[in-house]
Write a protein that binds this DNA or RNA. Sequence first.
RNA 1: CGGGGCGUGGCGCAGUUUGGUAGCGCGUACGGUUCGGGACCGUAAGGUCGGAGGUUCGAAUCCUCUCGCCCCGACCA
Length: 568
Amino acid sequence: MRWSRSFIPTLRDNPADAEFRSHQLLIRGGFVRQLAAGIYSYLPLGQRTVLKIIRIIRDEFDEAGAQEFFLPALHPADLWQETGRWADMGENMFRLKDRFGRDMCLGMTHEEVFTEIARKEVRSYKDLPQIWYQIQTKFRDEARPKSGLLRLRQFIMKDSYSFDVDRAGLDRSYDIHHQLYCRIFTRCGLKFVAVEASSGAMGGSQSEEFMVRTEAGEDFVVSCACGYAANLERAVSRLDKISDEPSSGEPRAVSTPGQKTIAEVADFLKVPPTHQIKSLVYIVADKPCLLLVRGDHQLNEAKLMAAARTVLVRPARPEEIRELFGADAGSLGPVGVRNLPILADPELQGRSNMTCGANKDDFHLQGVTPGVHFKAEWADLRAVQAGESCVQCGKPLEIYKAAEVGHIFKLGTKYSQSMGAVVLDAEGKQVPIVMGSYGIGIERILSSAVELYHDDDGIIWPASIAPFSVIITPVNYKDAVKAAADRLYDELRTAGIDVLLDDRMERPGVKFKDADLIGIPYRVVLGAEKLSKGQAELFNRATRQTELIDINTVPSVVRERLQAGGIR
RNA sequence: CGGGGCGUGGCGCAGUUUGGUAGCGCGUACGGUUCGGGACCGUAAGGUCGGAGGUUCGAAUCCUCUCGCCCCGACCA
């Protein structure tokens, strides 16, 4: 492309409402423009980058024998009603009615539609396994779109689905995807880690997320030098045993006027938070439930969802708590509770002589021993905290922010069962298809690459997803320099290299600044003086190193560099 | 949904407290001088001040309502 004829609207100033570097640079560099909250237009430069990413994904999926589909974005409600997700998706689903008043929605994901095809067309185990994928626009009415292109309401997703006759087949399809994802993210130049994840409302047994470490992300990864890595929603750790004074007899009530928080009670009764029981009331699938964690621990709602096998959880409202316990939050405890289930974190198991609320305002109980003074069902509920010991090696755990660029799930038969997608197996028995579901967020690759690779001057694209591989910058686009630039431009294009020729009548400084901003990996600078000696400058955007090379060798050197970086 | 911030030429901002009919920088167009890291001089175009209603002789400015965007939280297959 010739810059003079391209639409690359770069900006000198950062847009006022962009906070993260990726967001600022993608707008300043003329890659994207915002249309509405969480909805962006991809300008030519952005689109080129998106297409590069998509090409890598297609390349890998096709190579692995997966087949590309293109499914509707507009779905009839009844399909989603079959799996119950019409209700489960709640506010996050864009819903509309057609002219006849029929309920429709915009697809957030495509398990239902793909399963619909499978149940109609796939009859026999001989038709399996299948891996079907598509690259398509998804819609989610996020409560709060944010972080530029990291959390969108309309976004492009590669979603794929595996169909197998049994669990072993699913395991294989899942492993194929795991490998594919590693190859794809590596080819996109990302530094990433695969972590254990919680499957949330998707259902299913096992899932892993592919995470890129960045402050712009919204997930937390718990990781250890030994290789252990998990989403905070799923992570576990090892804690030191706490020795308790043996408790004698029944719990005793003590007056704690106005002492509500763990910290206040710790101060007032001289009982450290580790020796207190934190009592929380949640409404789980419309039923109240008492949740217990150690005083210094935090409840993780994703773990609660996993334990309760429902996504329908919320904290109880103050009036609900009052009605259930006859006391307010801050004076609650498990002792004597009969009217609702109690779920307790295992860190309370085996403890004794603890302190908790008395279910009477301004009173607490001391000398409480879990398992003796109350019975509970045990379930991991607490969030791991940085510095706790790794379960694998005992070293301290680190917690950092990350963006989820991909997620793979073993779904099992949740969808095939509810939708009646069955095949005959080798024994002639009807069995539900065993499914997997796998997603990659295209814009998330785009923005996390920028988060990962930029400097004060702009973006530093990994060559594999850069909108152009090379930019030719003639210092002055005239006379011999112009002729040389034009010739080089033709040569590079002929060599099949994506090249941008900055043929604008701009001062050199402007061209350099713009080239830095849009992040083209290699820049060939042509100036009259060097050219008269038959030389060109090859500038590496990432290292900022310039080398003088014979102008005639530019195409071969550039091609060599790109190939060394894994391009083409 | 709760809390906070912001909407003024294409972009970044001032002006709002104390009402008097809109300004700066960048960008854009034209002319000229420049030309290896966002040049300089001159000229010019471009804004119903997010929208509606109200108060007032007069509203970017005060009041009411409303729409939008950003941030924190809630939420997030």
